[in-house]
Design a protein around this nucleic acid. Sequence first.
DNA 1: TCGAGAATTGTTTTT
DNA 2: CAATTCTCGA
Length: 752
Amino acid sequence: MQQTLNNMQQEAVLHNEGPLLILAGAGSGKTRVLTNRVAYLIKECGVAPWKILAITFTNKAADEMRERVDRIVGENSQDVWVATFHSTCVRILRRYIDRLGYTSDFSIYDADDQKTLLKNIFKSLEIDTHMLKEKNAMRVISSAKDELIGPEEFSKQAADYRDELIAKVYMEYQRQMKKNNALDFDDLIVKTVQLFDENEDVLERYQEKFRYIMVDEYQDTNNAQFRLIELLARRYHNICVVGDDDQSIYKFRGANIENILSFEKAFAGAKVIKLEQNYRSTGNILEAANSVIMHNRGRKEKRLWTGREDGHKVRLYQYDNAYDEADAVIHDIYGLCQDGNYADYAVLYRTNAQSRLLEERCVRLGIPYLIVGGVNFYQRKEIKDILAYLKTINNGLDDLACKRIINVPKRGIGAASVGKTEASAMAESISFYDACKKSGNAKIKDFVEVIEEYKAKVREGMKLADLIDSLLEDTGYREELEQEGEVEAETRIENIEELKSKAAEFENKYSLNDDTEQGNLLSEFLSDVALVADVDSFDESVSRITLMTLHGAKGLEFRYVYMTGMEEGLFPSSMSINSDDRSELEEERRICYVGITRAKDLLTMTFARSRTVNGETTWSKASRFVDEIPDEYLEKHLLEKNYNASSLYEDDYGDLDYERGKSQSETDRYSKGGNQFGGFNRKAPSTYQKASSVAKADHLDYGVGDTVIHTKFGTGTVIAIEEGERDFEVTVDFGDFGTRHLFAAFAKLQKI
DNA sequence: TCGAGAATTGTTTTT
DNA sequence: CAATTCTCGA
């Protein structure tokens, strides 16, 4: 990053009063501008830190920003309110939500919870899921909320039978949410807007508090979020938003590029500053990005430039199938990474499902990796169970949480008893938990007793970690897990331990904080946990390859980036290709643009002729986005023979540089155990760099026939050791885990 | 009440 | 293909 601010950046920093729209291209130093702006406001303009609000998209971005502000401003910089939209709203709501008829210990429902609730609603409304699927209903309701359309209004607008049905579901959904004293992610924004709309005094308080407002990743805001900041900034107009229309990739979540245009309308006289100098990528990478994004029509004209050297051309590789692709990419990284710092490498893909193959290769080669995305820590079963206990203790109105754990671990309370209690709750219109209290069922009584006991413990100020611990013992949860046995239970217990330490950490932070906005500890902890995204815990200081979706990579940068699965139908997705809405394809192109611009030094794009999707083998050609990059920026490595449909049944593999094993039919590749993955002992791909012996040991302290232990696979027997140029390649039979080829330096095998 | 096996369903992307 | 949901027998 450059030492001083360029002219445009400086102008943005110095413009401290009145509305400001910064159109910041990828890698143009927008975070730097934002942080410097905060510093300038505090140090030069004498603005009190607590009057500044900076809204980011992820917690990670918020932490990063806070850290950087700390570094420049020092001292009372922690008074600057840096948070995501969602956590900002939670903090406001915890304080004032009673005005809307909820209580401040409200629960936050994630997608799973929403789905459970919807399922119940579908059942009670007797909706045939062939007519309408929960998921669709959820999507429609969510986008209605993004547009601040409530159930009543939605009902009025309903155009057809399906809409009317959804309106009914929406209505019931909101009713139940209220009854459970719960809000979903969308509600957090919607309810805050509603709070402001209906309570002039509250709005005024926050307008006064937040005299200076900054919004990062502005292109990702949806209408509700736009409305929120518009309300807050209405009084003083000191609002600065930073965004890039080319990086708007969350349309499916309601993000509205139009917000960039409406900004100038909503805030008259807004100053607009463009940042077009890129400080991140080499010339070739940037030109590739420019040439791709040029094909979009709905965009503000701009062209990024860089002062950096041209660098290596963008490498393009074609492989026969997805297995080869994964294999080659990971091998390539292994070959390229001479300094052992794998944190410089990211492998990106369009869909989470693609991570599996890549992960497998990393495990096999013993190369450290981290998958970001997929299943969030907090949505694992065991964690959600514990959290449901905490929610039940904290918010007796949360029926969902209570029902989740009433028979976990098994207490012999089955569906029948639950149904009976549910009915009586309904009849008396009380919460499920209150109905439990009144229940005559002895087992349910025992359950209630446990919860009551813990409510008392919380009141007495028991530490969160201790609370979880004793919960595990008292309920027999730990015991049940242990009986379940073996490896599974162990990782689950480890996860719970992890949760305990996070709880302890949170409690420490909490007790140090004397913020007036904070409510009770348990509520705060639960909402903190609910709003954590997987990217948030991503730590770039650890040496490991990062595997994630292109969406997940937004806002990050890596020296080496691999964009995999560059195939028509996958990326751009077939959905967007078949859609008659051109903008869907443009969104895909923006995703591609985001991916390309993550790379600092070297970008590699790969695609495969065939790939298994949904258990079916599909054949595809290169993504159109690849074709949109002129040859002058590309270094192509294509297979010699192009696939065509007529040669499907011919021997199409003869000219490849490796043997394709006869037994490797599409179907038995996935069979468990054994070393059935083909292609490993083929000639290394041409990208496989000359090996150096950085990590290579001069000898191994085990030999053929020895029993060794591996951290992931457990114990195994060494079958063969081959001395490669760069490292020893060891073949080990791990029994259940099959036979594996491993690099000795990474596998860290230990003789036992 | 609960587990095992059968049937069904699905794929973008996520705060 | 895999994950989730459904169904049926004990």
